[in-house]
Design a protein around this nucleic acid. Structure first.
Lengths: 341, 341
DNA sequence: CTGAAAGCGCTTACAG
DNA sequence: CTGAAAGCGCTTACAG
């Protein structure tokens, strides 16, 4: 284990100078700096995180977070993950200021960003509204040294450090593959209940789903796509009318929320276990319906990691100022059946 | 953030005394110690890991590991996980000495343990042979202050700190549940190819599988159980004779290794995609067969975590000497289909 | 451009 | 039983 101290001895300079050279701080003679760097390389020097963390206590890292979590149970686990990361990194000086909103509103997100900046946060985690005004604000934040990571939802034409969240196309593909397995070669008529055709992630899931059934499962056909607006009253009515119509589908694929309404309609129609229901939901209610086999299977996102990883990435970034290797950090989605519980 | 320094000031004692009191070291006046502890409690003191880690550099933690990994690709990811943990904890003074064996042999495991003890390791990670001699050795190790964690395979009547590995019963249940979904109500005759009826994990998977199909899927019946000894020549012959017999099963469930042999037999018989094949394997070969849809789905273990977690748990134990809360730390198993790749 | 020194939070020989 | 001091590896004002 080589330390800065050892390098300083070998190079015949002070530890301060080694620190400056290795961290590319300015005010070091270029020749000296190069010599130090080459010694460090030869000795395989790696900076010790414990020492670094201790020294960093003098300028703690304050992170701001904004989630549309009010009334949205999905974000409970996101916040849990974020708090877990906060307490894991608390020893390294990390703390988090969380602001919540009810639903997505550009103006309230902009306001929350202002508040956080006033509080002096040095980085922000955000589930952004898909709005150019937000994208511009993210750019401005970066230019004053406040990096932003988008979590759960992306905003591509902004200058966010990276995106942390689901690969919606892939999880749609998984849903298609699973539907194909369960159909087992029989003809199946499928209705897709999506959240909104204006939400990118929902559309990507649908694309992934289509791509698989087209190439692998020609026995499956999508007969209808409807929007629930993530509203369980709407999904209830939609499902009810589907189930009571004479061309009742064999399967429903829900890309988004509002799962409760559809489940209730299925139960009332006595169709639990008779109609295939695939979702991406995994809130408390959904677990109950999965257990009761109203939901056949679910392929949930990983909300915990969506809260945890941004904190970790921002902390790492604060140390070395290097952008994460991946522009999009995908959290995993796993097929979940009643026996997985 | 309260530090030892602050507590020392308030209590009017030195930082050394606070350290002794808080860590229950002896040689502290009981009254003084109690006063210090109560102050710490009031202030919500939590020991700072960075400071702790730095001080701990004076007595680094050397961990020994023994895996039967030679010629067993499964353990590649276990070792990868272990090395990842090693480099993550290197800053805290953790290093690992790995010994590998070919297959399970009591005498060679005992020899490896001796070697590690000679090297001065302070903790051991082991995939134990199911043998009383090993159990006794683990007890002895603990009595001389060397804790052992069993990984991947457990040895219950030993004094291991805890077990890190798969919940085989649960992953068998998941296989049963998935089989039920794919069968979709139709009668299916299933053959189980297990590794060995002498391996606990394999039997637990079978039990889990039975428990689900009995209670949920009466349309499924297990018509035969055969042992492959994890040998692909044997599994090839077994699968071949099953596929060519006139009561060819509809599905094969493999609890263990030797997946390659069965896949080859299925391909040769032109039965890929026609016979359901469920496995728990996820080595490179298996991924190929999953992609080719020879394997219908797999529910692999999480080898990476089986290597990663024991290191983390032993490090934590070295700090506070407290046994992990759970006697068995289960790693997750996830349903994997071609679209998951 | 560089060094000496102090400090982050903890532990531990050493002295008393 | 307790304190003063040194040290783990790093950073950073301060002085020159």
């Amino acid at each position: 284990m080589t330390s800065i101290k050892k390098i300083a001895e070998i190079a015949g300079v002070s530890r301060g100078t080694v620190d400056r050279a290795l961290n590319n701080r300015d005010g070091v003679n270029e020749d000296v700096a190069n010599r130090i760097r080459s010694i460090a390389k030869d000795l395989g020097y790696k900076t010790n995180r414990a020492g670094l963390a201790l020294a960093a206590r003098k300028h703690p890292l304050k992170i701001g977070a904004i989630f549309p979590s009010e009334g949205n149970p999905y974000f409970e686990d996101v916040i849990l993950g974020m708090r877990a990361a906060e307490s894991e990194y608390a020893d390294f000086g990390v703390s988090i200021s969380l602001k919540t909103t009810k639903g997505f509103s550009t103006s309230s997100q902009l306001k929350m960003i202002d508040t956080l900046v006033d509080e002096g946060v040095q980085a922000i985690i955000l589930s952004p509204v898909n709005d150019l005004a937000i994208a511009r604000r993210i750019k401005d934040l970066l230019s004053v040294g406040i990096p932003v990571i988008t979590a759960n939802t992306d905003l591509e034409k902004s200058d966010r450090l990276c995106y942390v969240g689901t690969d919606y196309f892939k999880s749609g593909k998984m849903a298609g593959g699973l539907m194909g397995l369960i159909a087992a070669g029989r003809k199946k008529r499928i209705v897709i209940l999506t959240g909104s055709i204006h939400v990118l992630g929902h559309n990507q899931s649908i694309s992934g789903f289509y791509s698989v059934i087209k190439s692998e499962y020609p026995n499956l056909s999508v007969v209808d796509v409807e929007e629930t607006q993530d509203n369980s009253d709407i999904s209830y009515e939609l499902a009810k009318s589907l189930l009571t119509s004479k061309d009742c589908p064999d399967a429903i694929y829900m890309t988004a929320g509002a799962v409760y309404g559809a489940c209730r309609a299925i139960e009332e129609a006595g169709m639990a276990g008779k109609i295939i229901l695939l979702t991406h939901d995994y809130t408390g209610e959904s677990k109950v319906f999965l257990e009761k086999r109203v939901i056949t299977a679910s392929i949930p996102q990983d909300p915990f990691q969506q809260g945890y990883l941004p904190v970790k990435l921002l902390y790492d970034y604060s140390l070395d100022k290097e952008k994460p290797k991946n522009d999009r950090v995908y959290t995993n989605s796993y097929i979940t059946i009643p026996e997985s519980l």
